[in-house]
Design a protein around this nucleic acid. Structure first.
Lengths: 209, 209
DNA sequence: ACCTGAACACCGTTCAAGT
DNA sequence: ACCTGAACACCGTTCAAGT
């Protein structure tokens, strides 16, 4: 991964094409919000013939599925890292939600790919549910501790988690689409929505003005 | 729209090709959750040459944009119709949320198209915000009346609306992806999440168990 | 004014041939 | 074992020619 593509380094056999293809594709996804993801273009950028990637991925879908898989890993790491320095359960939920939105806004094409229909339905289709299990589990864990600590209302964890997840997922996608900066809202609408979410969760809400 | 394609009915000039193209495309979107939407296939099904649609739409994107536009119209109608028989503001919000989810689950490819990056960014890109204004306005209206009636907490309407919208949008997309029917949840997770949403909104929550 | 059919550039995928 | 290059089927888009 360190040594870059010098003409002498890749005479005929690339040697690390699988990784190169993934990295190139990932870069294209990062810059191209614009869904013109082409396998031939990936090969072109990687400096190999258009047939070469087929030795490492059975088809285009498989490559995209792999990118999505890595995306879920990254998201999971981002979520885990976000709550590291949170000093209250309430702030953990706030941090995790913000991290999810930030991840989506920072990688819009990837986030869409992860939850898109193309890769979502077929290859990763059966797996999409288990791919998102860590995220669910992460939320459930926060909520359970919140309930045990007497901070959150004691409702069914799965339902509570589903509500939180939907809220965060929706905020992320609306943010990606640039649909949240409304007319003249002073505060960050994402944080406002998350605070609102907490308000429904918490037993004792902060002084309602 | 009534008379169907009989061989004698379309000797050379179709006569109503624009509408036929839209209807065919719409049908394909309805059956094909699977994003293989092809302009040539549309022409094929409509029984015209693959070049014909270009007399009515400058390109593929434009056709998709038109489908998305109609989709937002339908969604708006579905939302308006959903609250017609609601006998409380609380139930209005519940009905609207359920209607949105139902619309998305009923027309997954269309819903994705409406909020997708392809048509969403370019052609309809500048318009996506205004396309969704009616939905926002619809929510704001419910919330304002709720606040005035003393049912909902008095927070900034835009923030409250954003939170509701994100919740509903997220629930819709997660439902489309089949990600909400968790392990062994008895109740409908969508309704559970919406009830949870209301709990954060309402001034006096129902007896918290 | 509206539609057809050939034409062009480009893709995904396959495969015999090269190294 | 891994990569190349021709080949095939298919798309989006254009355009001269038909009606």
């Amino acid at each position: 991964m360190d040594r870059m593509k010098t003409p002498t380094d890749r005479p005929y056999h690339h040697g690390d094409l699988r990784r190169a293809v993934i990295e190139t594709a990932s870069a294209m996804l990062r810059e191209d919000n614009n869904w013109q993801f082409t396998l031939r273009e990936v090969a072109r950028r990687a400096g190999v013939s258009h047939g070469a990637p087929y030795k490492h991925f059975p088809d285009k879908e498989s490559l995209l599925a792999e990118l999505a898989r890595q995306g879920f890993e990254q998201l999971q790491e981002a979520l885990a890292a976000s709550t590291a320095r949170s000093r209250s359960i309430r702030k953990e939920l706030l941090a995790a939600g913000t991290a999810n939105v930030r991840f989506g806004v920072g990688n819009p094409a990837l986030y869409r790919l992860m939850f898109g229909s193309g890769t979502g339905s077929r290859t990763a289709g059966v797996h999409l549910r288990e791919r998102t299990l860590p995220t669910r589990g992460f939320l459930v864990d926060i909520l359970r501790r919140g309930q045990e600590a007497g901070v959150f209302k004691k409702h069914a964890l799965q339902g509570q988690a589903a509500a939180c997840w939907a809220q965060v997922h929706g905020l992320t996608l609306l943010s990606i689409d640039g649909l949240l900066m409304a007319e003249k809202v002073g505060a960050d609408p994402v944080e406002a929505a998350l605070v609102h979410l907490l308000e429904g969760l918490e037993l004792a809400g902060p002084a309602k003005r």
